[in-house]
Write a protein that binds this DNA or RNA. Structure first.
Length: 253
DNA sequence: ATGTCACAGTCCCTGTGA
């Protein structure tokens, strides 16, 4: 079972790259973020031709999350059911896994209202996951906009006092981990420098100026069944890439 | 430390968000 998460930064602009990547990588389940599409515009039929059932929660210009599956797609949920209006989380059951595709608010700056929104949003996610069925396998993937450790930041000194690496954000991730979730890529590669996002500006990708902010959080039992997890850096190269690369996990179920 | 990208409306430039 191969599961991927990818912030595509507009599925409309990225369709040639995304469709080619799905075709060659063939994940069983793919979690997408920042589709930036309405549900009406989402390419359900094109994805069907690639072998995927899909569910989308979109709003148009901003945000938008999706789940693509070759192994079944049932019991789709959109949002947290707490009145939040932005399309940032969608859940479903796929091939025996409960999965969520998450686009955590950016936060912008520590003194911004958006930063408080980010912390509230992560708390809502923790509440939602705490209510899950005991014993079911869980994959919570997405763009968390948080680098869990200094190892996940190309130059930690630049991020002191900045969003993405602040202690309250990291504490919010630890709350998810204390609820039984494991940062899969880091579990399998404890000391490796791995990034998943590089700014479009300043030639950041080629200079190695990245952050690891796209995560696959999985339950302990599923983590034990994982055989590999990696970032597909090739997807960040070439013509019209997203600024994020896909994160992949493979499980021996 | 800010050299890019994507989107929609103000519509071939500008503001917003990342």
């Amino acid at each position: 079972m191969k599961v991927a998460t990818w912030n595509v930064n507009s599925l409309t602009a990225r369709w040639p790259r995304v469709s080619a990547w799905l075709d060659e990588t063939s994940p069983d389940v793919a979690l997408l973020q920042e589709t930036k599409q309405t549900d009406e515009k989402f390419p359900f039929a094109d994805l069907k031709e690639l072998g995927y059932e899909s569910a989308h929660y979109g709003e148009g210009r901003w945000n938008g999350v999706a789940i693509l599956s070759k192994v079944g797609l049932e019991n789709v949920t959109r949002g947290f059911g707490d009145g939040d209006l932005e399309a940032r989380v969608i859940g479903a059951q796929c091939g025996g896994l409960q999965v969520y595709s998450c686009y955590v608010p950016n936060g912008r700056a520590l003194d911004s209202d958006h930063y408080q929104y980010k912390l509230r949003w992560l708390a809502s996610l923790a509440r939602t996951l705490a209510a899950r069925e005991p014993g079911e396998h869980l994959v919570v993937g997405g763009d968390f906009n948080v680098a869990p450790r200094d190892l996940d930041v190309y130059d930690p000194s630049l991020f002191v006092g900045m969003t993405h690496a602040s202690e309250p954000e990291r504490e919010a991730l630890r709350v998810l981990e204390s609820g039984g979730l494991v940062d899969l890529t880091r579990r399998l590669h404890p000391d490796e420098t791995i990034y998943s996002w590089w700014d479009y500006r300043n030639g950041a990708f080629h200079r190695g100026w990245g952050l690891r902010i796209d995560l696959l959080l999985v339950d302990q039992a599923l983590a034990e069944l994982a055989t590999e997890s990696y970032v597909d850096r090739d997807a960040r190269k070439g013509v019209k890439p997203s600024d994020h690369a896909p994160v992949v996990g493979v499980f021996s179920l």
